[in-house]
Design a protein around this nucleic acid. Structure first.
Lengths: 206, 206
DNA sequence: CAGGAACCGTACCGTACGGTACTGATTATT
DNA sequence: AATAATCAGTACCGTACGGTACGGTTCCTG
């Protein structure tokens, strides 16, 4: 698994953007090498010269996009309980927004589709760069909150998992399967609030 | 969306079983009409006569399998708090087992793959017959527990969603992407216990 | 026994797509 | 200016697969 960030030329990033655009609003079916070349305004031959083969191009798309996940804002060195609450809600809200975005849906579908064909590299990349990254950062935040005496848990990682579950519930799976959010779920900010309140009820000290 | 349970002849169910078997241990790539016919010991022509086309056959696979979800054991008319706990753990454990099963993984991947191609019928079927079914049953259980004074919540459906999130966390997405469960997650029974305890801490009255 | 339905096996067709080869134009280099 | 390199555009090839056609066999029915 190659997790080192590669550098692409501007020409190549243009190709990746074009491909992502096609994927997002045409589905996997629209992501043919010919279509990508046309959209990017280059020849198929150049595609193959720059990326090797189709799978490598797909990997480049995911690798590039997954590393764009926004890192939860740097936890302040000294923070209050309210600041913790706010930081968690911000994290949850951001997570919901990402998960429900067209781009995230398209990329996850693509990776799962590849997994269904026996190739797990895209999925691993997505997990490592996407979830792993954001998870690690948030775990740090939780540990700081514990050190400050606001939270109490055995394992920060386990607590993070609980938070993750409380926030996403089955929303991600549903959107991947093609379900649309119910009206009362449209308000992502409120969903985030509720999830964080639940989380704090489980782990807050006082 | 056709959600009425269709009846298949034994010959046809044999085909569906063969196809599911192929899908589970060969991935979507192995699910060609020729392979299905060979595995089922029939001709391609019969396949098309019986199911119409490939998509209809896929729909039949999912439709048939999704309706096999085990309904949470009938809630007893009068039950204790311990019985509620046990029923919830049983539900959670069962849910985890299903979600981590090869069959569930393969079917969800297939449905998501189709969604990536712009066809959401498989996904809808999976949601309606699988998650919808089991969810509705469990919501009934929660309502009974509320009536008995054990639980307190505004919306049983929302409470069910929280339970769902606490149980699954990100496990389903991870297995769909090809991740394997971490060692400490292998013990599904214990995961279920922890999730239910969290749930009760959030919603128990006393 | 005769007629027909069901169905297997196989051959076949059309198409879509990944990947490659060639050509001509444009740009960079000396 | 001459040569080399890059690349768009297009044509082409091989293969895989969905779907169909057909001949032959089995089995049921009158």
């Amino acid at each position: 698994m190659n997790d080192t960030a590669q550098q692409f030329t501007t020409r190549q990033t243009a190709v990746l953007d074009a491909a992502l655009s096609l994927l997002v609003d045409g589905g996997e079916k629209a992501l043919t090498t010919a279509a990508i070349a046309k959209e990017a305004g280059c020849s198929k031959e150049s595609l193959y010269k720059w990326f090797g083969d189709r799978d490598a191009l797909l990997a480049a798309i995911i690798s590039r996009q997954a590393s764009k996940v926004r890192i939860p804002q740097a936890p302040k060195l000294s923070f209050t309980e309210m600041a913790l609450h706010e930081a968690l809600v911000d994290f949850a809200h951001n997570l919901l927004q990402v998960i429900c975005s067209e781009v995230s849906i398209a990329l996850n579908r693509l990776a799962i589709s590849q997994a269904s064909k026996g190739d797990y590299t895209l999925g691993k990349t997505l997990l490592n760069r996407g979830r792993g990254h954001i998870g690690a950062q948030t775990t740090v935040l939780l540990r700081q909150a514990e050190a400050a005496g606001f939270l109490k848990f055995d394992s920060a990682e386990a607590a993070y998992q609980v938070l993750y579950g409380l926030v996403l519930q089955d929303i991600q799976l549903r959107v991947l399967l093609g379900d649309s959010l119910r009206p009362e779920e449209q308000n992502l900010k409120q969903l985030a609030e509720v999830a964080v309140n639940h989380f704090l009820k489980l782990y807050q000290t006082n």
